[in-house]
Write a protein that binds this DNA or RNA. Structure first.
Lengths: 339, 339
DNA sequence: TTGTATGCGTTATCAT
DNA sequence: ATGATAACGCATACAA
């Protein structure tokens, strides 16, 4: 493996008999050179297979045409879809993308931010994650757009998010209009804004139809011990299934939870959707293939990604604050066989 | 948003009243400075919040402590798991990771390689993808390790892959030992080495048990038109299900295909696994939750990732060829309810 | 239209 | 133990 030295602008200049400045000009097409020299230089570049050293360019220009993405868990379907979409439009815009998987670790997140800044990234996209770190301080010195991650009010940071409130509302309304009166929300113990909003939507829908939301309406699973998640759901649900006024509708905050719930219910001996109806969230591929196929809320990944990119690139290139700093994109009910 | 100028080594030098050389020495702990100056400089660094500019460092050192990953489709579960794992160990080793989603586009792949080289990446990991591009030329000038991607024999490139042959063999043997005599392989039209190997495994297992592999044993779906994939499987399978000597076992080359096949069979009115048995490949999460839960082959993502990183980092740091240039890691049968 | 010279932030060589 | 300075590859202000 011979790492042959790469050819630089200087070589090109020597070979074609002009100065480095001139070479630089024709490469960047800045004008101020004759057609003849252009031809000459381009020919040499072609022959030598010269390629720009973006490290040097970045150092000189103080920008890298690179943007960073912080994502908590790339193996999560929704996240990876968003990332993939973002990467695609950014690529079109001429930006490279550094995807950083923070594994929900605050330390890793900080380390990555440091690394990204030292790489002179032009902008940063932060997807979800817990909001207790200071994106705000960050956005003072760097264009930042967040996706599904609440930030301080006085922030320069832009926020793009799914309408989790509406999602929670529509999901719950689906349960109700399909005939379920005794509904609960199956949620998790965390402080994600998306979780909070979905709960609000649930409550609002309940209220609209004159249904109460009590402590009993909320079952929150602790995600710390993943292995027993299924057990946790089981022990929370079983006693509530047997009673006179048993649970007849479940809005689960994500599809994984929903599917676990479905299993528990089926094992208990109840029918879905006749005895109890279930709605999930995220439209994970598993919701299409599980049994029975799961009614769920679908994110509009395409517009989330494009809005995020549009906002970020806008503020990078104009170096000015954009018109809207908060976009909320609707989610859509996908009706399948659990309601 | 005030992009305040970042502080450099020069400032540190001025403030602490030493030269830039000295500052650089204490930062890199190269010795040749007094304890006193060290203390002094470190204090200033602390106070000012100085952070190394890795762009400049990279330019000077001709290395970036960054490695690139080329992945065809980050939303594919297996790929995203591998990437996540790789990212994790590389992070521990002090390397940043640039994940590039090539979307199976040759143009994008080339563009990304160009970009990565110009960013002075220290190494490259290529996951799957079609083998008709020249990783070989690449590996002349850059440490490269491939995962599940066949390359030319004379190559410097290292290859880590799942044992697709063994996977195909074990999957098929599972069908046979569970009582199925009339087996087919459900595959796709592509030239991926993994596809080819799985087919070989299928044939070998058939042969071992005195079962023939004819043209009729192979059903290859065209993936071009995704929307009609389900239809394609249906029309391929239906006529073969009705006959006297109907299909009793299907080895599907991936879980998506397997699940579609399961649906077709169920719709046809046959029982699984009593009438026909199915084995998939990849252990996608959907295989756990689909109905009935799918027997499938599980990759050992952890060792694939760690072997890949180990190999890459080894050749980067020692700048020498590693002992083994080809590692094959076993896959594991996960027995669920389709066999 | 073209060339010279300077600087981006580092590290490394060579003095001192 | 420390400092001055060159060099990495590039873009640009200024001079010609």
């Amino acid at each position: 493996m011979s790492r042959e030295k790469k050819i630089s602008i200087k070589e090109i200049a020597n070979i074609s008999g002009v100065s480095v400045a001139t070479v630089s000009r024709v490469i960047n097409d800045n004008g101020r050179f004759s057609a003849e020299t252009k031809r000459k230089v381009l020919k040499v570049i072609e022959e030598t297979g010269y390629e720009t050293n973006y490290i040097a360019k970045s150092l000189r220009m103080n920008k890298s045409n690179t943007i960073g993405i912080l994502v908590p868990d790339i193996s999560n379907t929704f996240f990876s879809n968003v990332v993939q979409e973002i990467e695609s439009v950014l690529f079109e815009d001429g930006y490279a993308t550094i995807i950083c998987n923070t594994a929900r670790s605050k330390e890793k997140e900080q380390a990555y931010i440091k690394m990204l800044k030292s790489k002179m990234i032009d902008g940063l996209i932060v997807i979800s994650g817990f909001s207790d770190f200071e994106t705000d301080d960050l956005s003072e010195s760097l264009p930042v757009v967040c996706i599904d991650r609440k930030i301080k009010l006085n922030s320069h940071t832009i926020l793009i998010e799914s309408n989790h409130y509406q999602g929670g509302f529509d999901a719950t309304e689906e349960l109700i209009t399909k005939g379920s009166k005794n509904n609960i929300i199956l949620t998790q113990h965390n402080r994600l804004s998306s979780t909070v909003e979905r709960l609000s939507g649930f409550k609002a829908a309940q209220k609209k139809y004159g249904l109460p939301t009590t402590d009993n309406s909320i079952i929150a699973i602790d995600m710390n011990k993943n292995h027993s998640r299924s057990e946790a759901i089981k022990s929370a649900l079983y006693p509530r299934l047997a009673t006179e006024e048993g649970i007849s509708g479940i809005f689960a905050i994500n599809d994984r939870l929903a599917i676990e719930a479905v299993r528990v219910i089926l094992n208990f001996g109840l029918k879905i959707p006749s005895d109890v109806k279930v709605v999930g969230f995220d439209d994970d591929p598993i919701s299409r293939y599980c049994y029975p196929p799961l009614t769920t809320m679908q994110h509009n990944v395409g517009v989330i990604a494009s809005k995020a990119c549009q906002a970020l690139v806008g503020i990078i290139q104009q170096s000015t604050d954009p018109l809207t700093s908060h976009e909320v994109v609707p989610v859509k009910l996908i009706r399948r066989e659990t309601t």
